[in-house]
């Protein structure tokens, strides 16, 4: 995604937020409410066991979706560690949260690494990957930007650091900023579990 479409995406988020604000019955969220967004409908990726996965597989659970790469030293582990805390904060409802980690670096993130990596955080987390085209398609659908950047003898990835939250009916509901606190996101997920059954 280029800069212009990213800006358009931000404008879209703001508009969605404004629309949600007009509805007095709309629940309050700490994260950005993107209910009714015309993107983020589905993905078609593969899990480390080789099973094809799409959003429909997780109906009945709140899904937290994050795009990143395992060779990331900073934002990705911080985000997944927050997801671990969110799940703990949910207590007995933690099982109704499914955390999905989509690699934007399928070249290096083999299914084996993905499995080891997500399990190191929480055995319930699932890593997802696709070939270059499937990865691009999923990222585009969620307006996630990523780009390979050479550094020394290797490369790193620039990428969108937002997580998305999808309700138990499979509708995209929230965009969670990197800075958002675990407590606030857990509260949002509790609200979603309560209001969208």
């Amino acid at each position: 995604m280029n800069r212009r479409s990213w800006l358009a995406c931000c404008a879209g988020l703001t508009l969605t937020l404004a629309l949600a604000g007009c509805n007095p019955d709309a629940p309050h969220f700490n994260s950005v409410d993107v209910t009714g967004a015309d993107f983020g409908k589905d993905f078609h990726l593969t899990d480390p066991d080789g099973n094809p996965r799409s959003l429909a597989d997780f109906r009945g659970k709140v899904v937290m979706l994050f795009f990143g790469f395992t060779q990331c030293p900073d934002v990705c582990p911080t985000t997944l560690a927050r997801a671990v805390r969110i799940r703990k904060l949910l207590g007995s409802e933690g099982d109704r949260l499914q955390v999905l980690f989509v690699t934007v670096d399928p070249e290096r993130d083999t299914p084996e690494i993905l499995r080891e990596y997500t399990h190191a955080f929480d055995p319930s987390f699932i890593g997802l990957y696709g070939d270059a085209a499937a990865t691009k398609k999923a990222a585009d659908e969620f307006r996630v930007f990523y780009r390979k950047v050479p550094t020394g003898s290797s490369y790193t990835m620039d990428h969108t650091a937002m997580s998305y939250v999808i309700d138990p009916q499979g509708r995209l509901r929230l965009a969670v900023r990197h800075e958002e606190r675990a407590q606030d996101v857990a509260e949002d997920i509790r609200t979603l579990l309560k209001t969208s059954s």
Binding site: T151, D158, A161
Partner: peptide
Amino acid sequence: GTVELHEMTMTDNMMRMRA
């Protein structure tokens, strides 16, 4: 094998890492 000094920056929810 290689060690670099890096800076991470976040702009508009975009993570960038540079040597």
